[in-house]
């Protein structure tokens, strides 16, 4: 079974390459030219810590399984920071009087695209679909959770707040903020990532908290509620 999955993964990793090679499509050309210096478009994810530290931006070779296209199109035209301490966090912190702080002089604003470019790039990104075997399509079943209960789970019961902000200026700084996750990320991806972060990114510094299926669903309810609240 394991072997089977691995072969499958290899074929999936090939897909984006095949697409690149055949298409002259504008979005893919732009990605190759202006984005591939910082983003890996072909995979696989780094398997060493040195590889994680060298990474200049998030891996995009599974973008089509990860992001919501509407969010991509908007964000690419008006990028805002997602990881308060950049990538990798250890390269963007320094010792302060009361402990480590972010060295914001080392964080650069993200390149911006115009509307036409953003549309083409979004289309190209959505065609990069490595990792499909890690996703159970339709696994997420929409539902509700109270904000109080969601926050309790995220903070007190599971300790996720240590690394993730649930509002600007509140929470941990080494991971991506989660107050926009509900708008940014596909629900089934979030479930898959929280279930086993290292299946996507073998040396990433998010722990596997062995969450139950029920809790995975509840966290996604919470992220969706947070994102809705954040939009108002």
């Amino acid at each position: 079974m394991e072997h089977c999955q691995r072969y499958l993964l290899c074929w999936l990793l090939l897909l984006p390459v095949a697409v690149n090679a055949s298409g002259n499509d504008a979005g893919m050309a732009l990605l190759q030219k202006d984005c591939s210096g910082c983003h890996d478009l072909t995979g696989p994810a780094p398997t060493t810590i040195a590889g994680v530290w060298q990474r200049q931006g998030p891996d995009l070779f599974y973008a089509g399984n990860k992001y919501k296209p509407a969010w991509l199109k908007t964000w690419l035209q008006k990028p805002v920071r997602i990881r308060p301490a950049g990538m990798y966090y250890g390269r963007h912190i320094k010792e302060g009087a009361d402990g480590d702080v972010i060295d914001s002089t080392t964080l650069k604003p993200h390149p911006r695209l115009n509307g036409e470019q953003a549309k083409a790039v979004t289309e190209a990104l959505m065609s990069l679909r490595a990792g499909s075997h890690l996703i159970n399509e339709g696994e997420y079943k929409p539902g509700k959770i109270s904000m109080a209960m969601g926050e309790l789970m995220f903070d007190k019961f599971r300790g996720c707040l240590a690394c993730h902000e649930i509002e600007e200026g509140y929470g941990g700084l080494s991971g991506p903020e989660v107050y926009s996750a509900g708008n940014r990320l596909q629900e089934d991806f979030m479930i898959s990532y929280m279930r086993d972060p290292q299946a996507w990114d073998p040396r990433i510094f998010m722990p596997n908290k062995h969450l139950k299926d029920r809790d995975l669903q509840k966290f996604v309810h919470f992220f969706r509620a947070l994102a809705a609240e954040n939009e108002q």
């Binding site: 966090y89 402990g99 480590d100 707040l161 240590a162 509140y170 929470g171 941990g172 700084l173 080494s174």
Partner: peptide, 8 residues
């Protein structure tokens, strides 16, 4: 005193 401790 890591970068995450502020709200822990």
């Amino acid at each position: 005193n890591g970068v995450n401790v502020r709200d822990m």
